[in-house]
Nucleic acid binder design. Structure first.
Lengths: 351, 351
DNA sequence: CGTTAGCACTCTGGCGGATGGAGTGCTAAT
DNA sequence: ATTAGCACTCCATCCGCCAGAGTGCTAACG
């Protein structure tokens, strides 16, 4: 069914007031707030209707109304106006994005922190794991007679390195040999294609440098494992305490614990069709989030990989502001990492 | 002045009870808890003395006593017994240390998390910044015609890399030339010795590849800056809420904010003479920590660098347990990073 | 018929006073 | 030197009360 224009305006006024104050709003307040004046009594009638429709709730007989989850849902879907970002805010985001650290993990971490600062809610960010990654090339760099650097680059253009020290000395020629051996044997393989047999064969071929093979390959394996591993970064948990709905300590504590515990990143579902998804209260699967809202934005990195950032807060959260900031940041991240997939300055997993 | 043996035992009993329960302890409780029986009245007399000495306090006329900061100080200095770690705990720490990620920053981060889990208090960890670091060598690795990897190694054996993509193509010979140019010009220089003039000279020498010089050098600068930058990692803030002294929300909030805000790492002073330092309540400089205790452990990495990990909690914290865990972990970290400075498997800043 | 004023009703949150319990300090006895 | 006894103090809790805010209903109004 379709709501009357007036009902919509009243609902919107109620929700926006409640978002600001976190207090139930009464008929008088609504009547005052609206441009076209109606008496509180009229508003009361409308509010009774809205309650009957399940869009509003009463905490008790004689308090004002508060929006129900469905009320928020309607608000988000139809009533909410896109929020404009101020120059200051865009500047802040841009600046943060162009921060010198361009490492994947740190940027993700940092992104979470920025969202959190910008929205005053706790934020989370997932690194996007990719399962079918392979090593594209190995490089071994001699540093001293008994030390060299392994540089490994994946097909997703992530570059990692490690310094290896040896008990015994090594010649440049040996290193060279090792290098080509690694590049012919272990490139283009996914994690589970690197079998113990393969290792044995390679070790055999390596002659007296056989021990080094396992050193280098196990490093490569570490890298692949790390890239496969998705991790949840959370930031700004403290903001939770600023909101009256978490003054009860208990609530704050359970939610904080839920957010900060390492866990299945899948509990924050990646929005599939649209770039952004809003989960209001009971729409969340996890019990700990049942009276909490989550806003999740997806950003596409090159190579079919996706990243996710999001915000967690009370159902009474300022959806308009948050979605604006989040989508802007997501775009920025996509641009930063992606830049169209492979070309130009792309994802360097470096350092 | 020296306390009588009995006074010491009473003080200790009070402190340990208070550490457990967070409630003022009365004469009866103390009398019951002590092996050698005394009547509550006797204990009361002693307690009055201890209060006169400034070691105990009364929240109000008719509550039990609670330890004063000086009381804790005495306890920490003289009364406290070293706590033994259980096998489980050492295992847990060892396991965490041998975790595959051996990157400096991550290990530090992880270390904080472990301390926090182990102690149930918020923990912090500082990365040890070193100011006089220089680049020891550059390596440029050709990946494609228009892309190469820069690998940079510092004199502290940290290795970093970045993938660079170019708008135009590049020959192997050019890269070679660039490589030697970089190694002759920019190695062995600290951050402020890399002057714009030097850059200009090098760019001139580079001929048509002049643009690449600044690309690579600015990366090197980033690396040096990053190593100079000390950062505070905090973990387990949530644990604060578990302790009754932070049920007042306000306290919790200010402290949490203080801990989570990026700030001068100097606010956690590095213990100089001894490996561990305990700051009790008012002994802290920062106002936000005035009724909070901080336990800080230092661990020495090779090359004169030091790391710091620590724990923050109410003055009533379990110093014995915490110091035990912290010092064990600090030793582990020292071993992990240091291993005597340069030799064998040493610090790889890598990946 | 939609809108509004008026009014009785309900529920909460805050305030004040009374009560009981816990613990102290003092005194006197052992 | 230690202890039992006792009067005293202070806090935490509970209870009842009241004001305020907001509702829903009814009746009047345009």
């Amino acid at each position: 069914m379709e709501l009357s224009e007036r009902k919509k305006r009243i609902l919107r006024a109620i929700i926006e007031s409640y978002i600001q104050t976190a207090e139930p709003v009464g008929s008088k307040a609504v009547a005052d707030a609206m441009e076209t004046a109606f008496s509180p009594a009229t508003v009361r009638n409308e509010m009774a209707d809205l309650e009957a429709l399940g869009l509003l709730e009463k905490p008790h007989t004689s308090a004002g109304r508060i929006p129900s989850p469905q009320g928020y849902r309607l608000y988000v879907n139809e009533l909410m106006e896109e929020h404009r970002l101020s120059m200051q805010e865009t500047d802040r985001i841009n600046q943060a994005l162009h921060l010198k650290m361009r490492e994947l993990d740190r940027v993700i971490d940092e992104a979470g922190r920025i969202v959190s600062q910008l929205t005053n809610y706790p934020a989370f960010a997932l690194s996007a794991g990719s399962e079918r990654t392979t090593i594209r090339r190995f490089d071994l760099l001699m540093v001293e007679r008994n030390a060299f650097i392994v540089v490994v680059m994946t097909d997703t253009n992530v570059v990692r390195n490690r310094l290896v020290r040896l008990p015994s000395d090594l010649t440049e020629a040996q290193l060279q040999m090792l290098n080509t051996l690694l590049n012919t044997t272990f490139t283009g393989l996914t994690l589970d294609e690197i079998t113990p047999e393969l290792m044995r064969v390679a070790q055999h071929a390596a002659g007296e440098a056989y021990g080094l093979i396992s050193l280098v390959v196990s490093f490569a394996i570490e890298v692949l494992e790390e890239l496969e591993h998705r991790r949840v970064h959370t930031a700004g948990l403290t903001h939770l305490l600023e909101h009256p709905e978490y003054r009860s300590l208990e609530k704050a504590q359970t939610l904080m614990r839920y957010l900060s515990e390492e866990g299945d990143p899948a509990r924050f579902p990646v929005p599939q069709n649209e770039p952004m998804r809003i989960l209001i209260g009971p729409e969340n699967v996890a019990d700990a989030l049942k009276d909490t809202s989550v806003v999740i934005a997806r950003y596409d990195i090159g190579g079919g990989m996706q990243g996710v950032i999001g915000v967690v807060g009370p159902t009474r959260m300022d959806y308009a502001r948050i979605t604006a900031r989040l989508s802007y940041l997501a775009e920025g991240l996509a641009r930063l990492f992606g830049q169209g997939g492979l070309p130009g300055g792309g994802p360097d997993g470096g350092t």
